[in-house]
């Protein structure tokens, strides 16, 4: 149990450390790629990824550094992509919103919110068509959950009984708009999802153990072939929608103490110490991870830019 939790903690910390370094770099040297930071939501990506096998597939959205890294995506390729370098995962053509590493079955991330939902449904269709044992997971936010194609897809995936898990990361805000400004009185995600005959569970997205427990229950369910499922994880995004800043004027919850109280990483760290892992061991692990990330960022900073003529390549295969 210790070993599993420590492993999860390392992954969550890796995601946090990578984004912190990127944020620092962003503030010092302009990164010319829109960056939507995942800081605060790490328990969701890691909890879900830990419920999957390597051959299961994952797709993400505009805020997918965490999903990509949790699935095992290459750190240097990601850093290079953020800095627009040739060695980037998309050779500099995608940027932060287009993470991909098919070697670990991270199929791609695409920032048109719920646009990823039917795409993931198609990836799941292929799995079902060839009677594979794998499943497909797509991440979307609470804002995307308001787009109609989610409901079209729940019906379609239910009709074809596809192994599709939609993870709704409900971080309470669409940019800075709270749920109360966006949803009808009586809006209930559970009722909506179950109305399509799909399975629904809700997890505390700031609690790794709750996420992994419920994600595992749903991935087991999906492998049974009964059709799609939705896992809603209530969580909290610490930074602004698309910049490494904490703007307390936008959201009352942005006060530092609120963020700290909700922080999934601090929470898991406390649990590890309580379970008997020494503070010293954890601190040493954290330092190793940070040093690794620094090296990867330095590698990306030094990496060459793409050649100008590649502007015209890859329009078609």
């Amino acid at each position: 149990m210790h070993a599993t939790l420590l492993k999860a903690y390392k992954k969550m910390f890796l995601i946090r450390a990578a984004e912190q370094k990127i944020a620092d770099h962003y503030l010092r040297n302009k990164i010319m790629s829109f960056v939507h930071f995942y800081v605060g939501q790490e328990a969701v990506a890691v909890g879900v990824a830990d419920s999957l096998g390597k051959s299961d597939k994952m797709l993400g959205n505009h805020r997918s550094h965490g999903h990509y890294l949790a699935k095992g995506g290459n750190m240097r390729a990601m850093m290079c992509e953020l800095l627009g370098k040739e060695a980037g995962s998309s050779r500099g053509k995608g940027g932060s919103m287009h993470m991909i590493d098919t070697s670990v079955n991270f199929v791609g991330s695409t920032p048109i919110l719920a646009g990823v939902v039917p795409l993931a449904c198609g990836v799941a269709f292929e799995q079902k068509f060839y009677k594979r044992k794998n499943i497909t997971v797509a991440f979307l936010g609470d804002g995307a959950f308001e787009e109609g194609v989610v409901y079209e897809t729940l019906n379609l995936a239910g009709l074809f009984r596809l192994p599709l898990l939609l993870v709704v990361e409900n971080n309470l805000f669409s940019v800075n708009s709270p749920l109360t400004d966006r949803r009808a009185r009586g809006h209930d995600s559970k009722t909506i999802v179950e109305g399509f005959g799909a399975k629904y569970m809700r997890a505390d997205g700031n609690n790794y153990r709750d996420v992994v427990k419920k994600a595992s229950a749903l991935t087991r369910y999906l492998r049974g072939g009964s059709g799609p499922a939705v896992l809603e994880c209530v969580t909290y995004r610490h930074m602004a929608h698309s910049a490494p800043i904490f703007d307390e004027s936008c959201r009352a919850e942005d006060a530092a103490e609120v963020r700290k109280a909700k922080d999934s990483i601090a929470r898991l760290r406390r649990e590890l110490i309580k379970s008997g892992i020494s503070e010293k061991t954890i601190a040493r692990t954290e330092k190793n991870i940070e040093q690794g990330v620094e090296k990867d960022l330095a590698y990306a900073i030094a990496a060459p830019l793409p050649k100008k003529e590649t502007l015209f390549t890859d329009l078609y295969v």
């Binding site: 199929v107 939902v117 198609g122 990836v123 292929e126 194609v149």
Partner: peptide, 23 residues
């Protein structure tokens, strides 16, 4: 035959093509 859900159906086909099928 599909539900009257052009966005989802087309998207599902695109996703299956990304996985190597030829819809």
């Amino acid at each position: 035959d599909t539900p009257v859900s052009e966005h989802a159906v087309t998207g599902m086909a695109v996703g299956s093509a990304i996985s190597g099928m030829r819809p």
